[in-house]
């Protein structure tokens, strides 16, 4: 089933695994996949943490898991992730795994399973967050290990996060996405502290490495509509090395600036690909034919990245393009 031709791979979402104590009625995912077989489970980890699972095989035939998350629900942000100048930087995972299939995604190296897992106890996350907000303001990334926008029809969580954030003055959230939906904005509670962060890649990178994701043009259009309602961040991160990368990234920037009014973008994130050594090891084992995973990275402080000269070159170039268009732009780099 690894790299399986379509003939052998089971259809996506043929099964939905649901923890015993969760009521099936009212679950959007169950409504959406009416023909899926429901399999009851005791604990999602019995499934999610099985040994030797095929991440690649499960990407071809994903099944859905619906569970409750227990224990700590909000985590301090990693030092290698961008905090955008925020002192109290956290992240949370109300959904694990993504509908998209990007070859460079760290989830491939981090999770034993590719099955999307939806946690239904969002209210518990909200409660824990309220506890933190009593102590200090919080900057929270809610769409790190997934693409929440892409899952909106199955969860409704983007709407819930907007409502929640609007009512908490000291909370700012980031919703990272590649999704090109333009139909949600009217139903979302508008809030200056909900930042939609679009990952922008050249079409050549999208076609080659970001399987199942919307095109560059579609993302640019979506970002352009989004900024009428919410602050928008553009993330040129990760930048991926490809032959003629300079021309390709330059062309990409020209294309998106035809559609997006750069002056109205809140800020930018620029970063070349980097990944922890443990994750890369897993990815290399899982993807022996991957140009991205098998690149001869350099190891620095436990993280693999492009050679410094190349990484700096790429990031400087991208930052330069942005500054040319918007002199006072706020650009965050690793």
């Amino acid at each position: 089933m690894e790299n399986c031709k379509e003939g052998y791979a089971e259809a996506p979402f043929k099964h939905i695994y649901i923890e015993d104590d969760i009521d099936v009625g009212n679950l959007k995912a169950v409504e959406r996949f009416r023909d899926a077989g429901i399999i009851r489970i005791k604990h999602y980890k019995d499934l999610f943490n099985r040994q030797r699972q095929s991440f690649v095989g499960q990407k071809a035939s994903p099944n859905l898991i619906i569970a409750r998350k227990h224990g700590k629900l909000i985590y301090e942000g990693s030092p290698v992730c961008q905090d955008f100048g925020n002192k109290h930087f956290y992240y949370t995972s109300c959904v694990m795994n993504c509908l998209y299939d990007c070859e460079y995604c760290y989830l491939r190296g981090m999770y034993p399973s590719a099955n999307p897992t939806i946690f239904v106890n969002l209210e518990d996350i909200f409660d824990e967050l309220d506890g933190l907000l009593k102590k200090h303001p919080v900057y929270l990334c809610v769409s790190y290990d997934t693409d929440l926008m892409a899952f909106e029809d199955l969860t409704g969580y983007v709407e819930k996060w907007c409502d929640f954030t609007a009512s908490r003055e000291d909370l700012t959230i980031e919703i990272r996405t590649k999704c090109a939906r333009k139909d949600l904005w009217d139903r979302l509670t508008s809030c200056e502290r909900v930042i939609f962060a679009y990952t922008i890649s050249p079409q050549e990178i999208i076609t080659k490495y970001e399987k199942g994701t919307p095109s560059l043009l579609m993302r640019a259009e979506a970002a352009s509509v989004a900024m009428e309602h919410f602050p928008v961040r553009l993330c040129f991160d990760p930048m991926i090395f490809i032959k003629d990368w300079k021309d390709i990234y330059g062309k990409m920037f020209d294309e998106i600036t035809e559609i997006i009014d750069i002056d109205r973008i809140k800020d930018f994130s620029v970063g070349s690909f980097r990944i922890s050594s443990g994750f890369l090891k897993n990815m290399r084992r899982m993807m022996p034919d991957s140009e991205i995973a098998q690149y001869p990275f350099e190891l620095m402080d436990g993280f693999y990245q492009y050679p410094k000269e190349l990484a700096d070159g790429m990031e400087n170039y991208m930052s330069g393009l942005i500054r040319e268009k918007k002199v006072d732009s706020e650009i965050f780099r690793p």
Partner: peptide
């Protein structure tokens, strides 16, 4: 079989029209 004793789960990635049970 898609579930054994409420604890073990073969991963059903291979396409099949067979009905399922535990």
């Amino acid at each position: 079989i898609n579930r054994i004793l409420d604890r073990y789960y073969p991963d059903l990635l291979l396409k099949s029209d067979l009905p399922e049970t535990s």
